[in-house]
């Protein structure tokens, strides 16, 4: 009988070794799997490579991992947190900055067995031409750059080659889930969660509500249990700190 529900969160996520690549769902704090992230922190996991859209605007979730010095590299579109940039410019954490749609599609592609694809996003910009610094030396000089992308013209427009992402592990958060691992998300807390879940070789899901099998109608399942290995119950969410709007555009 398939039963993916696990009571002991720490025991479940302890299979993640330090140094692992982990895809994480969530957009800001919306749909962010804080219970799983906290468990990794409590277990002292370090040297992690995260694939995640944001590095918090608060010190919960991925922000907690950052301030505790657990990150080696972050693949993201919008890190936000000042403390992240301080570490990045000091050479303590690397930043692979990619357009948000490319991040979503790289996760989807990785989970779907598509090794690479061409996209127009980012063509002709410093994120794809080899000039973006993805890592600094401690003295603040550039240590490495994102590699220039292969390009190809389709329909008269330049496109860049982007690679699918397969992560060692994925952490996702859903509103409801059952013991088969079927998940249903709520409103825009869905965001990157189904994609991260697909991209993980081993996917952990935290659910706000553990429901009986068949309680979710087959038509209403957003991510089927085939993509999910372990289901835990999310700890009740603490009141979220207000998240300030922020953006690079004046």
């Amino acid at each position: 009988m398939i039963d993916k529900f696990r009571e002991d969160v720490l025991a479940v996520v302890d299979i993640v070794p330090s140094g692992a690549c982990i895809a994480i769902g969530g957009f800001g704090s919306s749909g962010r799997p804080d219970t799983l992230i906290d468990a990794l922190c409590d277990l002292g996991k370090r040297d992690l490579h995260l694939v995640v859209n944001n590095v918090g605007a608060d010190f919960l979730g991925v922000g907690r991992m950052l301030v505790e010095g657990r990150l080696r590299r972050v693949t993201a579109s919008f890190p936000i947190l000042q403390e992240f940039y301080d570490e990045y410019f000091a050479g303590k954490v690397e930043l692979e900055l990619i357009p948000q749609g490319t991040l979503a599609e790289r996760l989807r592609a990785g989970g779907a067995g598509i090794p690479a694809f061409f996209t127009p996003s980012g063509a002709g910009t410093m994120l794809t031409d080899g000039t973006f610094v993805d890592g600094y030396n401690p003295d603040g000089t550039p240590a490495s750059h994102l590699p220039p992308r292969e390009t190809r013209v389709f329909n008269g427009r330049e496109h860049v080659l982007e690679y699918g992402i397969v992560a060692d592990f994925a952490l996702v958060k859903a509103h409801q889930g059952d013991r088969k691992g079927n998940l249903r998300f709520r409103y825009s807390a869905r965001n990157f969660n189904p994609l991260a879940g697909m991209a993980g070789r081993h996917t952990f899901a935290e659910v706000e509500q553990l429901v009986e099998v068949d309680e979710l109608h087959p038509d209403d399942i957003h991510l089927p249990g085939v993509f999910v290995d372990d289901v835990i119950v999310a700890l009740p969410t603490s009141p979220k700190q207000p998240v300030l709007p922020t953006g690079p555009v004046p």
């Binding site: 579109s77 919008f78 890190p79 936000i80 357009p99 948000q100 749609g101 996003s121 953006g247 690079p248």
Partner: peptide
């Protein structure tokens, strides 16, 4: 400044 791109390029 701090580089962040979000969905602008897409």
């Amino acid at each position: 400044r701090n580089p962040a791109v979000g969905g602008a390029m897409d």
